[in-house]
Design a protein around this nucleic acid. Structure first.
Length: 508
RNA sequence: GCCGCGUUGGUCAAUCGGUUAAGACGCAUCCCUUUCACGGAUGAAUGACGGGUUCGAUUCCCGUACGCGGUACCA
């Protein structure tokens, strides 16, 4: 086998792509790129009952946004096509049959009702979920109990059947996990998993082994929820006599919700933060689940925060670009325990990236958000200037609306309550005077606006502090934002004066 | 129930047997700022429990507890 690094991410197209999924992609991707390898995306659509139209395209959109482009996939093509398991259906059966011939698997004809009956009949307090295992299989309807002739007859009649792996009794199945070290299982405690379903489709267990082998996958990273079925896969690699080509495994810790259970859509609804990379609308129910993208996250921040959820490089550095991650990522340093997702920290990462990145990198994304809020941007250069001025106070891209919309339209509401209590005629006159002075100004620059303001303040023997705040509220609508004269300089003479007049009318 | 994997502040976490047990998020206080942020400083807050091994355990081993995952013709 070659030393070529080939990794894969194999989602099933059943709905939104959540944090844990994207992180699995990310770790796969980082590992591949770091080793000059290939990242393959394979679609695991073997369960047609759960197939959701649009889900595959959605996954590609999410990956594209994150900058995690596959080298091979149903969309990008590649030498091991097809990359959709439903299109590979024909090739699985031969392996299932090979296993049967070798005595490592068998046909099972039990109906859903019979299985159900078995589960209730053998259910006890000590064993609430009886498994189809080395004991039970002797009591069921399969090629082991039926005998060759009867089995043959049923097969010829076209009786519905599945193929199950025949788990050996009392064997120690061990393997070395790149993250956890040696993990071992007793084969007696693992049930006879279905390999081939009645509809001829393979289950995940068969498909993952056959496909990883035929696509020459060198390293298999997947979520920790797969650890319990790893012995089935290990045995399959062995039985198919591919052991020397078996990928190295790494089972990634889970990403948890605030209640420390496996992160799910439920958590997003409950705690009010996104779970999916991008907006996902269920085509059946029309239910919309919010994504990080739409919430105002930068892809750089999203990738960064995901990378840090379960991994660090041992230094104090937390902000990493994709290039740095590719360089520094080390699967050995991935933590062994699940990490609770903290939305506050996620926002912090985004804030860091907003500050760090040049405005040009996200100007268009913000412009779109402004358009969604019915604010059209006429002057791109000025827009960039404004974003630069307020970026420090924006955590999410959507915050730019609240922080900068007053540059492009007069504030909808003026927080007069902030000024009124201390408002008097003297202040009213001051602003009238300020308007007159500003109207006479030949040019409109930050410094002269400030100078003029201060001169009038001094002439009236007032304090700048008590007038600065009213001016701010008049211009922006509230007690926030960058320097007042910066704002006035950008919005221009006419607009500045108009806003002061408007506020004066409200106060007077 | 059984099997597997885990367990350092509220959260993310460093430590490859010896430290005053880092750092970050969040929180609090202060400074800066004639606003809000940014920035800076300070503070509160951590090794689940019990046994070993060792001169010395957060670190290694065992047990207990707890948590999570799995236990489908779903992935």
């Amino acid at each position: 086998m070659s030393n070529q690094v080939r990794v894969r991410f194999a989602p099933s197209p059943t709905g939104g792509l959540h944090l844990g999924g994207v992180r699995t992609v990310l770790y796969n991707y980082l590992f591949a790129k770091q080793n000059g390898g290939e990242f393959i995306l394979r679609i695991e659509d073997t369960d047609q009952t759960r197939f959701v139209p649009g889900a595959e395209e959605y996954i590609f959109n999410c990956l594209a946004w994150c900058g995690l482009t596959p080298d091979e996939s149903p969309k990008h093509g590649g030498p091991y096509a097809p990359y959709r398991q439903s299109e590979r259906k024909a090739m699985y059966r031969q392996y299932a049959e090979q296993l049967i011939k070798q005595g490592n698997a068998y046909y099972a004809f039990d109906t859903a009702e019979e299985l159900e009956k078995m589960r209730t009949d053998f259910k006890t307090d000590e064993n609430p979920s009886p498994q189809y295992n080395y004991v039970i299989r002797e009591k069921m309807k399969n090629s082991l109990t039926l005998g060759e002739a009867e089995t043959q007859k049923l097969l010829e009649e076209g009786a519905p059947h599945v193929v199950r792996i025949k788990m050996p009794q009392n064997e120690e199945v061990k393997f070395n996990d790149m993250i956890r070290g040696e993990v071992s299982f007793n084969s007696s405690l693992v049930d006879d998993k279905v390999l081939l379903k009645a509809d001829g489709m393979p289950t995940y267990h068969l498909a993952v082994v056959v496909d990883d082998y035929s696509m020459k996958i060198s390293h298999a990273f997947r979520g920790e929820e797969w650890l319990p079925s790893a012995p089935v896969h290990i045995l399959l690699w062995k039985y198919l006599d591919w052991e020397n080509d078996m990928p190295q495994w790494a089972h990634l810790p889970l990403i948890l919700g605030p209640d420390s259970s496996k992160l799910s859509k439920r958590h997003g609804n409950k705690y009010g933060f996104p779970i999916f990379a991008m907006n996902w609308t269920d085509p059946k129910t029309q239910e919309l689940t919010e994504g990080f993208y739409e919430r105002g996250f930068l892809s750089q921040a999203f990738v960064n925060l995901l990378a840090m959820l379960g991994w660090n490089d041992g230094t104090e550095q937390e902000v990493f670009s994709m290039e740095e991650l590719i360089q520094r990522f080390d699967i050995i340093r991935v933590s062994h325990s699940g990490a609770i997702f903290d939305f506050e920290k996620a926002k912090w990462f985004n804030h860091e990236w907003i500050k760090k990145l040049p405005v040009a990198e996200y100007k268009d994304q913000v412009k779109k958000i402004f358009a969604d809020n019915n604010i059209t941007i006429a002057n791109d250069e000025q827009f960039a200037k404004v974003l630069e001025l307020v970026k420090d106070r924006c955590t999410l891209l959507n915050d730019f609306v609240a922080q900068a919309s007053f540059f492009f339209q007069s504030p909808k509401e003026i927080d007069t309550a902030a000024i009124k209590p201390k408002w008097d005629d003297k202040k009213q006159q001051f602003f009238a005077e300020l308007i007159r002075a500003y109207e006479l100004l030949p040019t409109w620059q930050h410094d002269e606006l400030e100078r003029e303001f201060k001169e009038i303040v001094a002439a009236n023997q007032m304090k700048p502090g008590e007038l600065m705040m009213p001016l701010r509220v008049m211009l922006v609508g509230g007690k926030f934002g960058p320097g007042v004269f910066d704002i006035a300089a950008i919005i221009g003479k006419d607009e500045t004066i108009a806003r002061i007049k408007h506020a004066l009318a409200l106060l007077g």
